[in-house]
Design a protein around this nucleic acid. Structure first.
Lengths: 158, 158
DNA sequence: TATTGTTATACTCTATAACTATA
DNA sequence: TATAGTTATAGAGTATAACAATA
């Protein structure tokens, strides 16, 4: 009964530690940990719709919109009309946004190293795999609860 | 270079999935995931000071105070003067708070099971261990950055 | 002097619901 | 009818700084 109920606790403690370290590391550049995640998501897949961006950040379209308005004011992202779907808008990093992200990525390197170095050889991929299994299980569960059975095309990464 | 930068992503995805599932599971009882964590922390160690409570939740005294005011209004926790330190106040669950927590714990059982069942035998303790190592590494790092070198008595659990 | 807690304050993230304009 | 995005709105968590009372 021990480790089963310890999983949520350990997961929370690790994530909050990461979040605080990230906030501290990026504060000098006026960026929050969550804003960094948005920028990083754009950096690895530009010209996403807001919906797709929200999905990849495992966030909410409304939340993402508020963040985009903020980052647009800082000149780090730009939104343009979607080429084929007039309802949608595509989001991308500006040139300044790309420069900013490179600096942020460098500022975050010590954090990634600290996490990686806390593990023995081979444990990092394993950890990632276990976390992904858990995330998938939880997300599938919430679907089956919230919606009637249906076809769900459910991929994690492109 | 892959799994190293995947760790933060996977950690975030897993935690946010947990947080959303928890919010959904507790919403019917008018409690948030974070409030549940506070109640659970009190349930396993009653009569803590607010500072100690904040530390164990890896949160902030000011944040915890706001949550306590809210939970006190709901009649789930009570604060009393500390027996020996007149500055401090001890926090404890009320009888209603204990009943509430038992119901919440039951409501959260499916979530804990989904996480546990997503793992193979023996992987759960391993995952907890890896997460704890990461949290410790990150917390120690933030201390050594934020403060001049000094003696730091740094334990995780009593 | 250092510490516990309170207060005031502000900002970010989160999320729902109603709305528009397209598909 | 369903979807993409906007708007209004609300609340919850986070955190800093100044302050009182006490150690």
């Amino acid at each position: 009964m021990g480790s089963k109920s310890d999983i949520p606790i350990a997961l929370r403690a690790a994530y909050l530690a990461l979040h605080r370290c990230s906030d501290a590391a990026f504060a000098a550049q006026g960026i929050t940990a969550d804003q960094f995640v948005l920028l990083a998501t754009l950096a690895r897949g530009d010209a996403l719709t807001q919906r797709e961006l929200a999905r990849r950040m495992s966030s909410d379209p409304s939340t993402v919109r508020a963040m985009l308005v903020l980052l647009e004011r800082l000149g780090l992202v730009k939104r343009e009309g979607h080429p084929t779907d007039a309802r949608a808008r595509t989001v991308a990093l500006t040139a300044a946004g790309k420069r900013k992200f490179r600096k942020l990525w460098a500022a975050g390197e010590p954090i990634r190293s600290q996490m990686f170095d806390a593990l023995n050889p081979g444990e990092a991929p394993l950890l990632v795999q276990l976390l992904n299994r858990i995330a998938t299980a939880l997300n599938e569960a919430s679907i089956s609860v919230g919606q009637p059975p249906s076809f769900n095309s459910h991929e994690v990464e492109p």
